[in-house]
Design a protein around this nucleic acid. Structure first.
Lengths: 111, 111
DNA sequence: TTGAAGTACTTTGAAACACAAAGTTACTTT
DNA sequence: AAAGTAACTTTGTGTTTCAAAGTACTTCAA
């Protein structure tokens, strides 16, 4: 029998990307600066992870001006939502081990 | 406001270590070979991650002979259980963003 | 008794990843 | 003119991770 830790996604292994996606699951458009303050990140660190998510087509960007200031906002794509939910399902399945004696429980051996 | 992704533990970032700890939450003693087959790992990869967990004193080892064969088993220490539960709590708090409109929900801005 | 397989590692080396810090572009505000 | 805001990119360094191979000892089957 296998526990299949490989069902987890490499993309969401990282905690910044996990935080970003989490926020995008409940909020339609989220601004760069909002991520920055809520996740307490530097510009560079945030930008690099957003770029990865964009590269996977898990999020999309909107650039506009609000008043006279530039504004960059992001939202999750359908693909991104699916991938993230799949990841969370795999995670949940793995972690359910701790809560109940499900089928994943292992036979003991006597000393 | 912050989402505090830093509440997560570096030790449990890795999926192998996550799988190992998960198994040790529901099973008292788990054998090396059991981890190996259930998590589908090479000896080396498994051994290295077990060593990290042992280094943190999150798991402890028992070496014995079963019949005439050597046997290595592991179990979680009290410290390990606490650290893992704390990690999962942080994870849960982060991921609850996706399920409800809790205090973590972010104000929207109009286009 | 030879040799394959089991058990549990350690070592090595290379690739991937992540981050801080600094630099950049193009504005706007004072 | 100088400082500030927004959103990056680049660079360099350190860390992590893994596959692959090597080690050491034992059992088991032919």
């Amino acid at each position: 029998m296998k526990v299949l830790i490989e069902g987890l996604s490499d993309t969401f292994d990282n905690r910044v990307r996990l935080g970003v996606m989490s926020m995008l699951m409940v909020n339609d458009w989220v601004e760069f600066t909002t991520f920055k303050t809520m996740l307490d990140l530097t510009d560079g660190r945030l930008a690099s992870h957003l770029k990865v998510l964009e590269g996977e087509a898990y999020i999309e960007v909107q650039k506009q001006f609000i008043g006279r200031k530039p504004n960059t906002s992001y939202r999750a794509t359908a693909l991104g939502r699916k991938a993230f939910n799949d990841h969370l399902d795999a995670l949940e399945k793995l972690l359910n081990l701790r809560n109940q004696n499900g089928p994943a429980a292992v036979e003991k051996k006597e000393d």
